[in-house]
Amino acid sequence: MKATTLQIITIFLTVFTLSVHAQQDSIPKPNSSFKPQIGSFQADYAYSPFTVKGTKMNIQQVNTAVMLPVYNHFENGKLDFFLAGVNYNQLFLSGLGNDFGGTKFYSVSVPLIFQKSLSAKYALMVSLIPTLSSDMKDVSGDDMLYTAAAMLKIRTSAKFSYSIGAVYSRQFFGSLLLPIIGIDWNITDKLSLSGSIPVSEKLKYQLSSKSAFGINTDFGIGGGSYRLSKKMNSDYFQVQQMKSSLFYEYSLAKNFTIQASAGYNFTQRLDLYSKDQKVNWAPFNNLNNRVPLEELKKPGVTFQSGINYRF
């Protein structure tokens, strides 16, 4: 599976992760005052330095995301909800000049997520994510990307659930349609596995009530694709990063955690494409048939820190 394809799945994984959290919270607690926590605020910073022919370069990313529960209803072990939010991303290139059409790129998305529980075991989740992604020098409808997904979530026990579905995305390179499988497994009281196999997996071990560490493998995390201004012929710039990392997280207060990670981008690729470099459907048509105007491939280390609050 191509890295570009995996990037699109990452957009959906953000939605999938939120829905998994909500589904976990739908397990009734002994007391009657149980209240699902499906809202969230996240912010993180990622730094990926590397050297090319003696020149030091780096990719920096700043991400913030907030998800608000517009509607939620929990009864008899069934949770229905509608979430709406805003995700904001900034990507900065340092030491690369203007070979890729600029050094600063931005994206703003508005994820909309709806879940309907068919029973305590089955739930249907659908999502829509319109995204504006460009250098923001002449914003227009040409900067828009659209992703939609539908998933059936199946809880087989209090410790294991999985999801099956499909994701569609209209990108600058064309359209994409993929099946997807998600998993959320509390292996023991301390050890858990979650993600979308084999795209992104997180193995987490709970050291105490406040701290945890683990391994995260992500084949799609990255800045995504950005349309350039008309002065740059409306070409598009694309970042692809595939990494494995060790992470540690600590709960500062109830529902508020901080996280730090260090890892390695075993694939790190920057590409500039002309606007006519497209495929009809991916992954059925080969994305590698596109010919980049500029390209840089360089693996390297990566560091990330972030905060997360749920409500």
Rank of each mutant, 00 (worst) to 15 (best):
Q240G: 13
Q240R: 14
Q240D: 12
Q240V: 09
Q241D: 12
M242T: 03
M242N: 06
M242L: 05
K243Y: 11
K243V: 05
S244P: 01
S244E: 02
S244H: 06
S245M: 11
S245A: 11
L246C: 04
L246T: 06
L246A: 12
L246H: 05
L246E: 04
Y248I: 11
Y248G: 08
Y248M: 15
Y248K: 07
E249P: 02
E249I: 03
E249L: 11
E249V: 03
Y250H: 15
Y250V: 03
Y250N: 07
Y250E: 03
Y250S: 03
S251M: 15
L252D: 00
L252N: 00
A253V: 01
A253S: 07
A253Y: 07
K254W: 08
K254C: 04
K254T: 05
K254N: 11
N255A: 07
N255W: 03
F256T: 03
F256Y: 07
F256Q: 02
F256N: 01
T257W: 08
T257A: 12
T257I: 11
T257K: 15
T257R: 15
I258K: 10
I258C: 14
Q259T: 05
Q259V: 07
Q259N: 11
Q259P: 02
A260G: 15
A260V: 15
A260F: 15
S261R: 12
S261G: 13
S261I: 06
S261P: 02
S261C: 10
S261H: 10
S261K: 13
S261D: 13
S261Q: 15
A262H: 12
A262I: 09
A262F: 14
A262E: 10
A262Y: 12
A262V: 11
G263E: 01
Y264S: 02
Y264Q: 00
Y264N: 02
N265I: 10
N265W: 09
N265D: 12
F266K: 06
F266W: 14
F266Q: 10
T267V: 14
T267M: 14
Q268H: 13
Q268V: 01
Q268P: 00
Q268C: 06
R269A: 10
R269P: 01
R269G: 04
L270I: 07
L270S: 04
D271T: 11
D271V: 10
D271M: 15
D271A: 14
D271L: 15
D271K: 15
L272K: 06
L272N: 05
L272D: 03
L272P: 05
Y273P: 00
Y273A: 08
Y273H: 09
Y273E: 02
Y273T: 01
Y273G: 04
S274R: 14
S274L: 07
S274P: 06
S274F: 06
K275L: 09
K275N: 12
K275G: 06
K275H: 13
K275F: 11
K275Q: 12
K275C: 04
K275P: 02
D276H: 13
Q277P: 09
Q277H: 13
Q277K: 14
Q277V: 09
Q277C: 10
Q277T: 10
Q277R: 13
K278R: 11
K278M: 04
V279W: 11
N280Q: 04
N280K: 09
N280R: 07
